[in-house]
Amino acid sequence: MAKPPARTNSGVRAQRDSWSTLRRFTSARIGLGRAGGSIPTRELLEFQLAHARARDAVNHAFDVPAFSEALSAKQIDSLSLGSAAGDRHTFIQRPDLGRILDDESKALLQSKTGDQGCDVVFVIADGLSALAVERHALPVIEMTRAHLVREGWRIAPYCLVGQGRVAIGDEIGALLQAQLSVVLIGERPGLSSPDSLGAYLTFDPLPGRSNAERNCISNIRPEGLDYAAAAFKLLHLMRQARARKLSGIALKEDAPLPAPAELQKLFPNSA
């Protein structure tokens, strides 16, 4: 086999920008430098990597059985459901189908409607990033659950949904006669955030609820809103919604976050 040619310093260099230090002020892709007027090789490939991660996150399939097992290990009951959008392609192109359950899932929940109802149902749906759900939903579930159990909330089995959109929580909540639904769902991946989790809260969930009737906590991930802060905000909203019997624009997410030490006390397993 021929010996590869030795690497030489050809002197070919992309031109740097003298103001690239301004990146300390923004995460925007500034000061990238240039080859002629075009983007330098290294920056081109960094972008491609970020986009590849975002695309992988969108296409990643939610491993419902594994998530269900992880909940079981924490003595948390769950139900495995699917939306009417049977596969990823249909899910992306037909948002309407991602908002309703498939027949089997619907029958499963209907078989439970004889039960007494509940105060809250948590719905864990892949949305546009199953990666977000697989990485960040369990810590948020555990942190909120500890408080809810202590406060006497009746919590329905956690509903895990493949190919689900936010509004599928309405149908699930209605079938389980839940007073509140909380949907933990993967948000649309950004180039620098392939795994951002969102939490949507709806009082008196029923098919046909509009987004104005929900409250949303966005960007839940360690680099964004961390788990303890998200759990604190979510619990605050849940208590408010229950007390005032509403959710949406009339309910403001206005609780000031406690100091880190206080948060640590409230959510001891958050470290």
Partner: peptide, 24 residues
């Protein structure tokens, strides 16, 4: 948009470099 990556709206548009490409 810097590097074609809008960090507020979370979508990809065209970059300063892209405009230079077309001009050149």
């Amino acid at each position: 948009v810097p590097g074609a990556d809008d960090i507020m709206l979370n979508y990809q548009s065209t970059s300063f470099h892209d405009a230079l490409y077309l001009r050149q």
